[in-house]
């Protein structure tokens, strides 16, 4: 190592943080090198002066009086909301950021789950729902006889632009004006008024048995699937 290398190590030597190998090298070098020795002495002198400077710092004579005069004009320290909240949470063991984050996540998850559940139910119940909670009602109709089935959509408010759809199995057929209709699915667009909206549907059973009639209403923010069980019996 040359003098420049040694001089880079002098600050660490003065801090007492030099590895033993380098410490031995520099301690052997300093007595024989006036330049490095002067450098080390100046550095140590600088540190000494700094300590002395620190101990010589004094405030001006009227410092305390001025500070007191300013302090009496200050309102008492206000406690921020976050600190007040933290002081309430601390006894519950929620004082650390990680614990608080976990608790907040859990609360948020529960809130979202509850909100989503209520909203999902709300779509069915608050806006549009069917009698008897949508449970399929049973109707019994004679075989090859035309029967009018009342599907009643009940809405708690007016809903426009609702797409209706009624599907029949192949064992049932729609009847319009006494004539059967070949289509098994009827679709139309209409609206629902607040309250009961009975929709009469004329159907005829071709074979005895139990069949499902699927009625559906779709609109803005609503989608209701309703099934009615028709039992066709021998006439």
């Amino acid at each position: 190592m040359n003098c420049a290398d040694f001089q880079k190590l002098i600050p660490s030597l003065l801090c007492g943080e030099l590895p033993q190998t380098e410490k031995s090298q520099i301690e052997a070098h300093l007595p024989v090198c006036p330049t490095c020795r002067t450098h080390a002495n100046q550095l140590e002198q600088t540190t000494t002066w700094m300590r002395e400077l620190g101990s010589s710092v004094t405030v001006r004579r009227d410092f305390h009086a001025e500070l007191h005069a300013k302090l009496v004009l200050e309102p008492p320290p206000s406690i921020p909301f976050a600190t007040r909240l933290w002081r309430r949470l601390e006894p519950m063991g929620l004082d650390s950021g990680r614990r608080l984050g976990f608790a907040a996540t859990m609360v948020a998850a529960c809130f979202l789950l509850t909100f989503a559940t209520l909203r999902f139910r709300g779509e069915n119940r608050a806006v549009l729902f069917l009698p008897d909670e949508g449970v399929a009602a049973s109707f019994r109709i004679p075989n090859h006889r035309v029967a009018v089935v009342q599907l009643d959509f009940v809405a708690d408010q007016t809903v426009s632009e609702v797409d209706f759809e009624i599907s029949l199995p192949k064992e049932l057929e729609f009847v319009d004006g006494g004539e059967p209709i070949s289509e098994r699915k009827l679709t139309w667009r209409g609206s629902l008024s607040a309250g009961s909206n009975p929709i009469p549907v004329a159907v005829r059973g071709l074979r005895p048995g139990q069949y499902r009639v699927v009625a559906q209403a779709r609109g803005k923010n609503i989608s209701v699937l309703h099934e009615v069980v028709l039992e066709v019996v021998k006439s």
């Binding site: 003065l14 007492g16 410490k23 080390a40 002495n41 100046q42 140590e44 002198q45």
Partner: peptide, 8 residues
């Protein structure tokens, strides 16, 4: 005055 002693 320079200080000859060094702290370790």
């Amino acid at each position: 005055q320079t200080v000859e002693g060094k702290k370790t």
